[in-house]
Every structure is written in structure tokens, then in C-alpha cells.
Design a protein around this nucleic acid. Structure first.
Lengths: 156, 156
DNA sequence: TCGAATAGTTCGATGGTCGAAATGCTAACC
DNA sequence: GGTTAGCATTTCGACCATCGAACTATTCGA
């Protein structure tokens, strides 16, 4: 009933469903997928106290520098992100999110959090620990396979 | 250690990682994200014995009819998908995948499957059953929230 | 101070996506 | 049986996200 292929299928379903959710949410707030991804990265880095630069954002998103400029132009004109020249090295730009973006983040996570909290009530702490180990192992496995693919030659 | 917020974080990480994997794999085989998504849907429906039509594919992907035609043109000229007029209603087109696509699917899932199988060796059948329940509950929670958002009004 | 290197932006071209109109086909009605 | 209405898909013209290359501004080393 819960063999490996079932788990793979469930995992894929979950990813697809989450994907739909992100896409719908972004569309609903007038943001493209790329903008959503960028905003999440910028928010994470900002919250962590090490604001992202356009260059490192481009690297993290596998996007060209010019495309990244466009993304930031959109996010800046929509009022989610602010660009600030670094005080130590004036070549660099630091990206910071403002209240509008934080509000967006809350709107994004609040319903998800409450839905998950309700859905996970039936699980004991011990089971949750097992699940956490499972998720971590799966993340690492995915990253490993991705690394292998990135290193091997293409076929077309 | 494994409270709800940790699980949410892990879940998001897993989705992001899977996303990267799909993107990289597609890019590596000369397929866009949209093409990858479409191919998965077409393969699933074909395997299930109820081949997809362009119209229903468009609906499933939240894509316009014309964009769907472009996707199918690309998939057909790259030799992954074939269009066949339905014999009963010649307005309709049935989409079928061929050996090249099946081979692509194997290349996609084989490394993932083996990596997951290895990563999940440490879990007992009972734990796997718990994990399956967890994944299912999370899928349903995500779908529910998505449905709520789809029904409420936009703010811009 | 002058060149090389780095960070980011601007510019022109490519191509995926969209809405609207066109095409091909089926079913219903008189 | 011919005509009309309706549906599935494709073609057309326009828009805009992305790309690579050239450009500006700034820093660092000799």
C-alpha cells in the first residue's frame, strides 16, 4: 500500500500541487513565476541579514544578468523591493523588501500554515520527527541526482 | 526539532529542489518547462488509456489554445508526441507519446527512483505508511487552499 | 595615474504566450 | 439534403520575458 512507487507518486503530486498554488497566487497578485521566485529568495536573504545583490540573485535563479535587471525593475515598480547602493562598495546593489512584500508573504503563508497545521494535527511528535527525516533525505537525494545530471554531457 | 514550521520549511525546500531538477532536466534535453509539464500530462493520460486532446491539455495547464498548439508543434517536431485525428469525431485530436518520449521518461525517473529507494531504505513499512498519510494530507490541504484562493477576489 | 577587473544596466533580437479571426468538422433543424 | 449553429483546433499579429553583447560606473593593483 505504501511502497516506494506510491511514495514517489505522492511526492510528485505534492510538488505539482504546490506548483499550481504558487502559480495561481502569483498570477492573482500580478506577479510572474520568476518574480515570485525572486521575491522569495530576496526575502529569505533579507530576513537572514545578508541582503542579496542582483548578481547573486541571477546566479541563484539561473537567469542572465539582464533578465535579472528586468525582474528587479518589475518588483521595484510594483513596490515590493528596493535597490540601495552598498555604502562600502558603490558598484554593488543591495536588495531589500519592504512592508508590501512582507504583507504579501504573510498572505501567502498564513492560509498554507493554518491548513497544514490542521492537516497535521493527527500526527504525533514522533511521527513528525520521522517525516522530517524523510523530507530531509528526499531533499538530499534530489539534490544529489540534480548534481549528477548537471555534470554529465547532453544528448542533443 | 520537528515542529510544524520546520515541516513547512522542509516541504518548501523539497518543492524548490524538485523544481530545479525538472528545470535542469528539461533544459538538458532541449525542452522548456511548459513542454516538460505537457509531456508528463500527455504520458499520464496515454498510459491510462484515455489520450488527451489539445483542448483538455490547455485546460489542465491553464494555457491558451494557441499556446497549446505551439507546445504541441514543438513536441511533435522534436519527435516526442504524435497527433492523430480521432476516428469517431474527426474534429478531435488525440495526443500520443512515442518511444522517444517513453525513453525520456525512463531517463527522468530512473535516477530519481534509485536515489529515493536508497534514501528510503532506513524507513520501516510502518513509517512509510505514516509518511504516505502525511503526503496525502498535505496534498489535500494544498489543493483546498488553492481552491479558496481561486474563489476569492483579487486586490489589484 | 592608468589599466584591468567587477557590478550592474541598456540595447537589439529571439521566441513563447496571448486574443481574435480563420479553418475543418459535426449535429440539429427545417 | 441543404443550411445553420456550434465545437475543436490552428493561424495571425502583437506583446513582453529572456538572452548576449556593448556600455557605464566603481574599485583595486602596479
Amino acid at each position: 500500500m505504501a511502497d516506494n512507487s506510491t511514495l514517489v507518486r505522492l511526492l510528485r503530486q505534492l510538488v505539482v500541487e504546490s506548483d499550481h498554488f504558487v502559480g495561481l497566487f502569483g498570477e492573482w497578485h500580478g506577479l510572474h513565476r520568476t518574480d515570485m521566485n525572486a521575491l522569495v529568495l530576496i526575502m529569505d536573504a533579507d530576513r537572514r541579514g545578508t541582503p542579496l545583490s542582483p548578481g547573486r540573485l541571477a546566479g541563484a535563479m539561473h537567469l542572465s544578468a539582464s533578465a535579472t535587471t528586468s525582474v528587479l525593475d518589475r518588483l521595484e515598480s510594483s513596490g515590493h523591493v528596493e535597490r540601495a547602493r552598498s555604502t562600502t562598495d558603490r558598484r554593488k546593489v543591495e536588495l531589500r523588501v519592504n512592508d508590501k512584500a512582507l504583507d504579501l508573504g504573510r498572505r501567502f503563508f498564513a492560509p498554507l500554515n493554518s491548513a497544514y497545521t490542521a492537516a497535521w494535527e493527527a500526527f504525533s511528535d514522533e511521527e513528525k520527527a520521522t517525516i522530517a527525516r524523510f523530507l530531509l533525505a528526499s531533499i538530499e537525494a534530489t539534490a544529489t541526482v540534480r548534481g549528477e545530471i548537471a555534470g554529465s554531457p547532453g544528448d542533443r
